[in-house]
Simulated assay, not measured.
Amino acid sequence: YQLLTGIFLGAIHAKYDAIDKDTPIPTDRQIEVDIPRCHQYDELLSSPEGHAKFRRVLKAWVVSHPDLVYWQGLDSLCAPFLYLNFNNEALAYACMSAFIPKYLYNFFLKDNSHVIQEYLTVFSQMIAFHDPELSNHLNEIGFIPDLYAIPWFLTMFTQIDIERCVRESINLFCWTPKSATYRQHAQPPKPTSDSSGIRSSTPYFPTECPDPPKTDLSRESIPLNDLKSEVSPRISAEDLIDLCELTVTGHFKTPPKKTKSSKPKLLVVDIRNSEDFVRGHISGSINIPFSTAFTAEGELSQGPYTAMLQSFRGKVIVIVGNVAKHTAEFAAHLVKMKYPRICILDGGINKIKPTGLLTVPSPQI
């Protein structure tokens, strides 16, 4: 965890010792209620000494973070840090204090609804991306992530089989374009300098999170309501260019190449009308105009590229258009038909036009 959170040992003991962990605060009552229920099956954490250490570490975090609040689940989040550093409370506190802003940024705000809702929406889109049949079923019965997934995120899955969680995550995310899980609230802003030019930071953990530089081809933030209206995730033009192994011209930087073995096969479906498609399209894409794509019953209309689309079932399929609402609806139709790994190009075809990557047919003589 020290490596994961980038802990610098420095003066962590002095800082921890200086925190007032004795003066009563309003959160004390909730902490007292939560601690006995946290990891009752573990002999170490459920011991009287374990409870006392829990109490001190949790209270130290609450007192030293006045802009944040104690939410139920923080005790479970604290548990692995305390378990691994049972004889070093200061290090347990430091690890937890570094972990939260790096991986749960703004989750413990007094009003964290905007953060939670964004995470839950992206989570719902990931279900649709990987398991459309499950997604359809959950939507039909109204079993939304708000009803079951909030504790998973608040505790960072500490209450489940972590080995299985990691193993399954690796299997899932090798098929997931990185930008599909983009969240505007996922990371803190870059640290700023004060008037003397010195960057503000804590004495023992870094505030800077590794974040690739944003370009004109990166994912853009959209209003939460717009994000919620889309069943399938968006991917960036950067990811699309990388996955299609295209070379960008001009001032745009081509993403670094991946090995072919790690690159999923994908199909780009351009849903603009045929006239717009002929004027310029992504190399290798197929054209299925939105206006004629589906029957009144919601089935795919038979056309020249229907068989190709069906042959790519199970591969990544990227929907590209020039009207965001249409691309979202087209993607939702495919999810309803149990097509997995459906995603939408963020910004549509207009994001690709400036790159010089659109294929334009030679004029007929």
Rank of each mutant, 00 (worst) to 15 (best):
L3A: 12
L4N: 07
I7Q: 01
A14G: 12
I19A: 02
Q30G: 05
I35E: 05
Y41E: 15
Y41G: 07
E43W: 06
L44I: 14
S47I: 07
F54T: 05
K59G: 09
D75I: 02
P80T: 05
L82Y: 01
F108Y: 14
F108C: 02
L109A: 06
D111F: 10
N112E: 06
H114S: 12
V115T: 13
Q117F: 08
H137I: 10
N139L: 12
N139R: 14
G142H: 09
F143Y: 14
Y148E: 08
A149I: 00
A149V: 03
P151C: 06
W152H: 11
F157A: 14
E163A: 15
V166N: 12
S169K: 03
N171G: 14
N171M: 11
R183D: 01
P188V: 05
P189S: 07
D194N: 15
G197W: 13
G197T: 12
S200W: 13
P203F: 15
P213V: 13
K214F: 05
T215M: 08
T215S: 14
L217V: 04
L217Y: 02
R219K: 14
E220T: 12
D239S: 08
H251L: 09
T254G: 01
P255R: 00
K258G: 00
T259F: 09
K263D: 05
V269G: 05
N273C: 10
S274M: 08
F277A: 05
A293G: 04
T295N: 05
L309G: 04
L309H: 01
I317A: 00
A324P: 00
F330N: 02
P340S: 10
D346H: 15
G348Q: 00
I349L: 13
L357I: 13
S362R: 11
